[in-house]
Computed example of a mutant assay.
Amino acid sequence: MRIFVIDSDPSFQGATVNVTVLPYEPYWDETVEGNTTRYSGVNYNLLATLCQALNFTFRRIPTREWDEVAHLVEIRKSFMTTVIYGVLPERLQRWDFTFIFEHAGLYFAMPTPVIRPSWLSFYYPLGGYVWLAILVSTLAVCIALIQVMVNEDMEKVKNAMCTEQMQ
């Protein structure tokens, strides 16, 4: 049986909490000045506000990718992470999302197309090996059709010769 005691003054009592972050602007930015690292950004501001309200300091655990961030929180090496992370039903089974402060949509970007001469607009979308395969298959089909036509002509000649010999 577990007994839960609810403290009327929520506080971490000055503890240091491990936090994983990914340094992506404008969410998290790091500036190193000598031996001091200064943090800024939206996620840092949220974390700093939590630190002040709940009386704790944080230790940033360096990470390189999203999977590492999630793994460190799941194994409890990190207590929390302040990242923009889409709320999906699968993630709700594993994560506790405290507050959705930014609703991000799905977008994609691509470079502006370079204007090519009109005769290249047909050639450009396909690579060299694709064009080589098209050429080889076209030649193979042409050779096969010519062979069929020659065989039909030879068959007609043979039939004509057989008919003449019988008469």
Rank of each mutant, 00 (worst) to 15 (best):
G127H: 11
V87I: 10
F108S: 11
G128C: 11
I84L: 10
R116D: 00
I100H: 05
L106D: 02
E90S: 00
Y123Q: 06
Q93A: 05
Y107C: 04
V87A: 05
F122A: 13
L106C: 03
F101I: 07
S118V: 14
I115Y: 05
T81Q: 05
G128I: 15
A109T: 12
T98E: 12
S118H: 10
G86V: 12
S121L: 13
M80V: 11
M80T: 04
S121C: 12
Q93Y: 05
I115E: 14
A109C: 09
Y129E: 13
T82I: 10
R91V: 01
L126F: 15
R116W: 07
T81S: 11
H103P: 01
T81W: 00
Y124I: 14
S121A: 09
F97S: 03
S118C: 13
I115D: 13
I115V: 14
F101H: 03
F99N: 10
W95P: 01
I100Y: 07
P89V: 02
L120W: 02
V83H: 12
R94M: 01
T81P: 03
W95D: 03
T81R: 04
M110L: 09
Y85P: 02
Y123K: 06
R94Y: 00
R94E: 00
E102A: 06
T98L: 15
L106G: 02
I115G: 06
G86F: 11
I115R: 08
V83L: 15
I84T: 07
V87N: 08
T98H: 08
F99E: 07
G105C: 11
G127R: 12
F108P: 06
V83E: 15
I100T: 10
Y124E: 15
V83Y: 15
V83T: 12
P125G: 05
L92G: 11
G127T: 12
E90M: 04
R94I: 00
Y85R: 14
T82D: 00
F122D: 08
S121W: 08
H103Q: 09
I115W: 02
I84Q: 05
G105V: 13
I115H: 06
F97V: 02
S121Y: 04
M80A: 09
F122L: 13
E90C: 02
A109W: 09
F122E: 06
Y129H: 10
R94C: 02
P117L: 03
T81V: 07
E90W: 05
Y124G: 08
M80L: 15
G105S: 10
F101D: 01
F97Y: 03
R94L: 06
T112G: 09
V87E: 06
F99W: 13
F99A: 10
P89I: 01
L120T: 05
I84A: 09
L92Y: 07
I100K: 14
Y85A: 14
F99Y: 11
F97Q: 01
P113W: 02
P125A: 10
P113H: 06
E90L: 04
L88C: 05
P111S: 09
P125Y: 10
H103Y: 10
R94P: 00
E102Y: 04
D96H: 08
L120R: 13
P89Q: 03
R91A: 00
Y85L: 12
V83K: 14
E102H: 10
